[in-house]
Measured scan of single mutants.
Amino acid sequence: MEVRTIKVFTTVDNINLHTQVVDMSMTYGQQFGPTYLDGADVTKIKPHNSHEGKTFYVLPNDDTLRVEAFEYYHTTDPSFLGRYMSALNHTKKWKYPQVNGLTSIKWADNNCYLATALLTLQQIELKFNPPALQDAYYRARAGEAANFCALILAYCNKTVGELGDVRETMSYLFQHANLDSCKRVLNVVCKTCGQQQTTLKGVEAVMYMGTLSYEQFKKGVQIPCTCGKQATKYLVQQESPFVMMSAPPAQYELKHGTFTCASEYTGNYQCGHYKHITSKETLYCIDGALLTKSSEYKGPITDVFYKENSYTTTIK
Rank of each mutant, 00 (worst) to 15 (best):
Asp303Gln: 00
Val3His: 15
Ile152Ala: 09
Gly161Pro: 03
Lys218Asn: 01
Pro34Gly: 09
Asp23Ser: 13
Asn111Leu: 05
Pro60Tyr: 06
Ala140Val: 13
Val22Arg: 04
Asp135His: 11
Glu308Met: 12
Tyr306Phe: 04
Val22Gly: 08
Asn110Ala: 05
Ser310Ile: 12
Cys225Ser: 01
Asn100Lys: 13
Glu168Leu: 09
Lys201His: 13
Ile6Pro: 07
Lys233Met: 15
Ile15Lys: 14
Lys158Cys: 01
His256Trp: 15
Gln197Met: 11
Pro47Leu: 04
Asp287Glu: 03
Ile286Tyr: 09
Thr292Pro: 00
Cys156Asn: 06
Leu151Ile: 02
Thr76Ser: 13
Tyr72Gln: 09
Ala87Val: 05
Ala40Gln: 14
Leu173His: 04
Tyr96Arg: 03
Met170Pro: 02
Glu253Tyr: 09
Ala146Trp: 08
Ala150Trp: 00
Leu88Cys: 05
Ile277Phe: 00
Phe174Glu: 01
Ala250Leu: 08
Val221Asn: 03
Tyr208Cys: 09
Glu204Tyr: 10
Gln175Gly: 08
Gly202Arg: 05
Phe70Thr: 08
Glu2Asn: 12
Glu71Ile: 07
Ala108Pro: 03
Tyr274Asn: 04
Lys191Tyr: 09
Leu200Val: 13
Val188Pro: 03
Val8Asn: 04
Pro249Val: 12
Thr76Val: 14
Val203Phe: 14
Met24Thr: 12
Leu37Glu: 14
Pro47Met: 05
Asn178Leu: 06
Ala115Val: 05
Leu291Ala: 13
Lys158Met: 04
Ile286Asp: 02
Asn129Gln: 11
Tyr138Thr: 15
Tyr269Cys: 15
His276Gln: 03
Phe80Gln: 04
Ser104Asn: 06
His48Trp: 15
Gly161Tyr: 04
Leu119Tyr: 02
Glu125Gly: 12
Ala136Pro: 02
Arg83Phe: 05
Gly257Cys: 05
Met170Thr: 03
Tyr73Ile: 02
Gln134Asn: 10
Leu151Phe: 03
Tyr311Gln: 13
Arg4Asn: 14
Cys112Pro: 06
Leu163Phe: 13
Cys193Arg: 02
Ile6Met: 12
Gly101Met: 02
Ala205Asn: 00
Val189Asn: 13
Lys191Asn: 13
Gly220Ser: 05
Gly164Arg: 05
Ser295His: 13
His256Phe: 10
Ser246Pro: 00
Thr232Met: 14
Ala87Pro: 04
Tyr274Arg: 02
Ala69Tyr: 10
Gly220Phe: 02
Ser263Trp: 00
Asp165Ile: 01
Pro241Val: 00
